[in-house]
Simulated scan of single mutants.
Amino acid sequence: MSLIVAGATAVALVVSKQRARERADQAQRDRLIAVTDTMSGPEFEQWFARLLVTSGFGNVTVCGGSGDRGADVMAIAPDGRRVVAQCKRQSPGNRVGSAAIQRFAGTCRVIHGGEICLLVTNSFFTAGDGIPMARQLNINLIDRHALQMWAWTGKPPLQCGTERSRTAN
């Protein structure tokens, strides 16, 4: 009997170590923004959800797909606010335009109750009225550079709810 218990314990230990190694390998790959360039949209949403988890966000849920009404990932920020994210995985050279910002602005707060609204892309946003409009509507735009820094350091941009503004304290 003790031989069976010892064998089961050894197998459990090996499996546990293998899973830990796989998680560490995945975390290392996730730090590189280039991995997003070959992902599908749903894979990018899962990647971003993992980034939120490793950055201290709670209740992270991937809800993208048809009928998502503009919310791909939802979470609770470290400061307690509700985060709603729309993820736009683009092919190299494609940019996210103002139409995507407008659509997201129409659902983030009213439909999903977002207190922090993030439009996230592995690319960039087009020049023009979209970026000023996003600022006016309090939509946080996370482009490739910001996303790369976040993935590498594990620290989200301040507007993502990692600390309250000085005026809120």
Results as ranks from 00 to 15, higher is better:
55 S>E: 03
23 R>I: 01
159 Q>T: 07
44 F>G: 02
160 C>S: 00
102 Q>V: 14
55 S>N: 06
68 D>C: 06
106 G>V: 00
155 K>L: 13
66 S>V: 15
124 F>C: 11
118 L>C: 12
150 W>K: 11
114 G>Y: 07
82 R>P: 01
88 K>R: 15
19 R>F: 14
64 G>P: 02
153 T>D: 07
117 C>T: 02
112 H>G: 05
133 M>H: 10
3 L>W: 07
62 V>T: 14
6 A>H: 10
92 P>N: 08
112 H>K: 04
148 Q>T: 15
156 P>T: 04
46 Q>C: 02
63 C>G: 02
88 K>H: 09
117 C>G: 03
42 P>I: 01
98 S>A: 11
140 N>W: 12
66 S>R: 12
166 R>E: 14
59 N>F: 12
103 R>H: 07
74 M>F: 06
152 W>A: 14
79 D>H: 08
150 W>H: 06
62 V>L: 05
90 Q>P: 01
46 Q>H: 13
94 N>Y: 11
27 A>C: 01
80 G>Y: 04
63 C>S: 06
101 I>K: 05
113 G>L: 08
99 A>S: 14
69 R>T: 09
30 D>F: 03
46 Q>I: 12
93 G>P: 01
82 R>L: 15
21 R>L: 12
150 W>V: 10
145 H>F: 13
83 V>H: 08
55 S>L: 05
7 G>P: 00
35 V>K: 05
140 N>L: 14
46 Q>Y: 11
25 D>V: 15
116 I>M: 02
72 D>G: 08
75 A>L: 10
53 V>L: 12
